[in-house]
Simulated assay, not measured.
Amino acid sequence: MAVVATDPDTDRTVALRKARFKVRLRRAAEACGYENLYQLGRVCGISKDSFKKYLSGTRLPNYECILRLSLVLGVPCDWLMGCDEGPMLRAVLKAREIDSAWKTKGSSMPRPPLERSCDDSHSRRETECEA
């Protein structure tokens, strides 16, 4: 019988990552207007069971799921995983505010063309967040 040693620091680190991820996933989804969070899972092609585990903080998604969530929500992968909360959340909320202002002004006004740079790949949320 093999004895498996566990590192308490690693266990705490993983638990902290799971907790941060679930909070940020909810914040970004709400900022994009997802009232039903499972709808976000469906849009990203994530099973309801897996998405439930992400929301409860019992499991972290694999890289592919993080990337899909990141693209749909318009936030960087590293932010979803716990890095630099302040500026990114403000940017997401500001983008939602701008979208609302355009909708309020009237749908007859033409929208300005979207210009994207090569390093602006995380901002692909124009149509996804409105779905």
Rank of each mutant, 00 (worst) to 15 (best):
W102H: 13
R17A: 15
T104G: 05
M109P: 00
M1H: 14
Y34G: 02
K48D: 15
R124W: 13
R20E: 14
R96K: 15
R26G: 04
S70W: 01
R59P: 02
V75A: 09
S117F: 15
R116F: 15
E126H: 12
R26V: 12
S70P: 00
S100I: 09
L93P: 00
G57N: 03
L37R: 03
I46V: 11
G41K: 05
S108T: 05
S121M: 08
S56C: 06
R26M: 08
I46E: 02
C44T: 04
R20L: 15
G106F: 08
L89V: 02
S100H: 13
D11G: 07
L60T: 04
Q39Y: 10
S56W: 03
S117R: 14
N62L: 08
T6L: 09
L69Y: 01
D99Q: 14
G41A: 15
N36E: 10
E130S: 12
V4W: 13
S56V: 06
V72S: 01
K48L: 13
L60V: 03
C32F: 04
S56H: 07
R27E: 11
S108L: 06
A101G: 12
L16H: 11
R125A: 07
W79F: 11
R90V: 07
S47A: 06
L114R: 14
C65E: 07
L40T: 06
L37W: 01
V14C: 03
G57S: 02
D7Y: 05
Q39D: 10
S100F: 13
V23D: 13
V72E: 00
A101H: 14
V14T: 11
C118N: 14
D9V: 10
D11K: 07
Y54I: 01
C32T: 05
S50D: 11
V92S: 15
T10Y: 13
D78N: 07
T58R: 10
D49I: 10
M81D: 00
P113H: 06
L80F: 03
Q39R: 15
S47Q: 05
C77F: 06
L25C: 02
P87Y: 08
S56R: 08
L37M: 01
D99F: 13
K94A: 12
T10M: 10
D120K: 08
K52N: 14
D9T: 08
T13G: 09
Y54H: 10
L71S: 07
A19P: 04
F51L: 05
L60N: 06
R116I: 13
K94R: 12
R24Q: 07
K48V: 13
D99V: 09
K53T: 08
C129N: 02
P87R: 08
S107F: 07
P110L: 09
L16S: 11
D78Q: 06
D11I: 06
A91D: 07
D120S: 14
A131E: 12
T58L: 08
G45W: 03
L67D: 12
G57T: 01
